[in-house]
Protein backbone atom coordinates (compact mmCIF):
# COMPACT_ATOMS: atom_id res chain seq x y z
CA UNK A 1 0.00 0.00 0.00
CA UNK A 2 1.52 3.34 -0.96
CA UNK A 3 1.87 5.98 1.71
CA UNK A 4 0.02 8.58 -0.36
CA UNK A 5 -3.14 6.56 0.03
CA UNK A 6 -2.47 6.35 3.77
CA UNK A 7 -2.16 10.15 3.84
CA UNK A 8 -5.47 10.47 1.99
CA UNK A 9 -7.18 8.26 4.56
CA UNK A 10 -5.70 10.28 7.41
CA UNK A 11 -6.83 13.54 5.80
CA UNK A 12 -10.32 12.12 5.38
CA UNK A 13 -10.47 11.88 9.17
CA UNK A 14 -9.09 15.41 9.61
CA UNK A 15 -5.91 14.06 11.15
CA UNK A 16 -7.58 13.69 14.54
CA UNK A 17 -5.81 11.41 17.01
CA UNK A 18 -9.23 10.32 18.28
CA UNK A 19 -9.97 8.80 14.83
CA UNK A 20 -7.00 6.45 15.11
CA UNK A 21 -9.04 3.25 15.13
CA UNK A 22 -11.18 4.46 12.21
CA UNK A 23 -8.05 5.26 10.21
CA UNK A 24 -6.60 1.82 10.96
CA UNK A 25 -9.90 0.17 10.00
CA UNK A 26 -9.91 2.01 6.66
CA UNK A 27 -6.36 0.92 5.91
CA UNK A 28 -7.18 -2.63 6.98
CA UNK A 29 -10.26 -2.84 4.74
CA UNK A 30 -8.40 -1.50 1.69
CA UNK A 31 -5.11 -3.27 2.16
CA UNK A 32 -6.24 -6.34 4.17
CA UNK A 33 -3.36 -5.81 6.57
CA UNK A 34 -1.44 -3.06 8.34
CA UNK A 35 2.15 -2.70 7.11
CA UNK A 36 4.74 -1.30 9.48
CA UNK A 37 5.51 1.82 7.40
CA UNK A 38 1.82 2.67 7.15
CA UNK A 39 1.47 2.42 10.93
CA UNK A 40 4.52 4.63 11.44
CA UNK A 41 3.09 7.18 9.01
CA UNK A 42 -0.22 7.18 10.89
CA UNK A 43 1.64 7.61 14.18
CA UNK A 44 3.61 10.61 12.93
CA UNK A 45 0.62 12.31 11.31
CA UNK A 46 -1.81 11.79 14.19
CA UNK A 47 0.88 12.38 16.78
CA UNK A 48 0.26 9.07 18.51
CA UNK A 49 3.23 7.07 19.85
CA UNK A 50 4.01 3.88 17.97
CA UNK A 51 3.67 1.73 21.11
CA UNK A 52 0.08 2.86 21.42
CA UNK A 53 -0.73 2.09 17.78
CA UNK A 54 0.96 -1.29 18.15
CA UNK A 55 -1.10 -2.02 21.26
CA UNK A 56 -4.34 -1.15 19.49
CA UNK A 57 -3.42 -3.01 16.31
CA UNK A 58 -2.67 -6.17 18.31
CA UNK A 59 -5.64 -5.71 20.64
CA UNK A 60 -8.45 -5.89 18.07
CA UNK A 61 -8.93 -9.01 16.02
CA UNK A 62 -10.14 -6.89 13.10
CA UNK A 63 -6.55 -5.78 12.49
CA UNK A 64 -3.80 -7.89 11.02
CA UNK A 65 -0.09 -7.16 11.14
CA UNK A 66 0.69 -9.85 8.59
CA UNK A 67 -0.46 -10.00 4.95
CA UNK A 68 -3.87 -11.57 4.39
CA UNK A 69 -5.12 -13.42 1.35
CA UNK A 70 -7.36 -11.90 -1.30
CA UNK A 71 -10.28 -13.91 0.00
CA UNK A 72 -11.00 -14.07 3.69
CA UNK A 73 -12.77 -17.28 4.64
CA UNK A 74 -14.63 -17.32 7.94
CA UNK A 75 -16.01 -20.59 9.20
CA UNK A 76 -18.62 -20.38 11.92
CA UNK A 77 -17.84 -22.61 14.90
CA UNK A 78 -20.85 -21.47 16.96
CA UNK A 79 -22.95 -24.06 18.78
CA UNK A 80 -25.60 -24.43 16.07
CA UNK A 81 -23.06 -24.67 13.24
CA UNK A 82 -20.92 -27.02 15.31
CA UNK A 83 -23.85 -29.38 15.85
CA UNK A 84 -24.70 -29.23 12.16
CA UNK A 85 -21.21 -30.26 11.11
CA UNK A 86 -19.00 -27.15 10.98
CA UNK A 87 -15.98 -29.31 11.81
CA UNK A 88 -16.40 -31.24 8.55
CA UNK A 89 -16.74 -27.99 6.59
CA UNK A 90 -13.57 -26.73 8.23
CA UNK A 91 -11.75 -29.96 7.39
CA UNK A 92 -12.79 -29.61 3.74
CA UNK A 93 -11.52 -26.05 3.58
CA UNK A 94 -8.27 -27.07 5.25
CA UNK A 95 -7.81 -29.87 2.72
CA UNK A 96 -8.66 -27.64 -0.23
CA UNK A 97 -6.48 -24.70 0.76
CA UNK A 98 -3.78 -26.44 2.77
CA UNK A 99 -3.92 -23.89 5.59
CA UNK A 100 -5.00 -23.97 9.23
CA UNK A 101 -7.26 -21.37 10.88
CA UNK A 102 -5.31 -18.14 11.36
CA UNK A 103 -3.05 -18.81 8.39
CA UNK A 104 -2.75 -17.49 4.84
CA UNK A 105 -1.60 -19.56 1.89
CA UNK A 106 1.63 -18.81 0.05
CA UNK A 107 0.12 -17.21 -3.06
CA UNK A 108 -2.07 -14.97 -0.86
CA UNK A 109 -5.29 -16.44 -2.22
CA UNK A 110 -7.10 -17.48 0.97
CA UNK A 111 -6.94 -16.57 4.63
CA UNK A 112 -8.76 -18.92 6.95
CA UNK A 113 -10.29 -17.93 10.25
CA UNK A 114 -12.76 -19.57 12.60
CA UNK A 115 -15.37 -17.36 14.22
CA UNK A 116 -17.67 -18.04 17.11
CA UNK A 117 -21.06 -17.02 15.71
CA UNK A 118 -22.05 -15.21 12.54
CA UNK A 119 -25.60 -14.70 13.79
CA UNK A 120 -27.48 -16.77 11.22
CA UNK A 121 -27.68 -20.08 13.06
CA UNK A 122 -30.67 -21.30 10.99
CA UNK A 123 -28.34 -21.45 7.97
CA UNK A 124 -25.72 -23.55 9.74
CA UNK A 125 -23.12 -24.66 9.05
CA UNK A 126 -22.17 -21.26 7.72
CA UNK A 127 -19.10 -20.22 5.78
CA UNK A 128 -18.48 -16.57 4.96
CA UNK A 129 -16.13 -15.49 2.18
CA UNK A 130 -15.36 -11.78 1.74
CA UNK A 131 -18.57 -10.96 3.60
CA UNK A 132 -20.77 -13.20 1.45
CA UNK A 133 -22.61 -15.79 3.49
CA UNK A 134 -22.80 -19.36 2.24
CA UNK A 135 -25.32 -21.31 4.34
CA UNK A 136 -26.22 -24.99 4.79
CA UNK A 137 -22.79 -26.08 3.66
CA UNK A 138 -21.93 -29.68 3.04
CA UNK A 139 -18.32 -30.75 2.51
CA UNK A 140 -19.06 -31.20 -1.22
CA UNK A 141 -20.64 -27.78 -1.61
CA UNK A 142 -17.82 -26.20 0.34
CA UNK A 143 -15.25 -27.42 -2.15
CA UNK A 144 -17.43 -26.16 -5.03
CA UNK A 145 -17.79 -22.70 -3.48
CA UNK A 146 -14.06 -22.39 -2.92
CA UNK A 147 -13.42 -23.16 -6.59
CA UNK A 148 -15.38 -20.02 -7.56
CA UNK A 149 -12.76 -17.79 -6.01
CA UNK A 150 -9.60 -16.93 -7.87
Amino acid sequence: MDLERVDQIIDKHQGEASSLIQVLLDIQSENHWLPRDALERVGRKLNVPYTRIHHIATFYKAFSLVPKGRHEVHICMGTACHVRGAARVLDTVRDATGIKPGETDLDLKFSLETVNCLGCCALGPVMEINGTTHGNMTPGQTAEVLKQYE
Binding site: P49, T51, F59
Partner: peptide, 30 residues
Protein backbone atom coordinates in the same frame (compact mmCIF):
# COMPACT_ATOMS: atom_id res chain seq x y z
CA UNK B 1 4.88 1.20 30.17
CA UNK B 2 3.35 4.12 32.02
CA UNK B 3 6.65 5.48 33.34
CA UNK B 4 8.15 5.44 29.86
CA UNK B 5 5.09 7.17 28.42
CA UNK B 6 4.18 9.63 31.16
CA UNK B 7 7.46 10.61 32.82
CA UNK B 8 10.11 9.95 30.17
CA UNK B 9 7.73 10.39 27.22
CA UNK B 10 9.83 8.04 25.12
CA UNK B 11 7.19 5.38 24.48
CA UNK B 12 9.89 2.75 24.08
CA UNK B 13 7.96 -0.04 25.79
CA UNK B 14 4.29 -0.87 25.42
CA UNK B 15 1.70 -3.56 25.81
CA UNK B 16 0.79 -5.87 22.95
CA UNK B 17 -2.16 -8.21 22.51
CA UNK B 18 -4.82 -8.62 25.17
CA UNK B 19 -6.27 -10.89 27.81
CA UNK B 20 -4.13 -13.88 28.72
CA UNK B 21 -1.74 -13.16 25.84
CA UNK B 22 -1.08 -9.55 26.87
CA UNK B 23 2.62 -8.83 27.32
CA UNK B 24 5.12 -6.00 27.30
CA UNK B 25 7.23 -5.32 24.25
CA UNK B 26 10.03 -2.88 23.44
CA UNK B 27 9.94 -1.13 20.09
CA UNK B 28 13.48 -1.98 18.89
CA UNK B 29 14.09 1.27 16.95
CA UNK B 30 13.13 3.49 19.89
Amino acid sequence: VRYCAEVKQKHAVGFVDRGIRKEICFIPEI
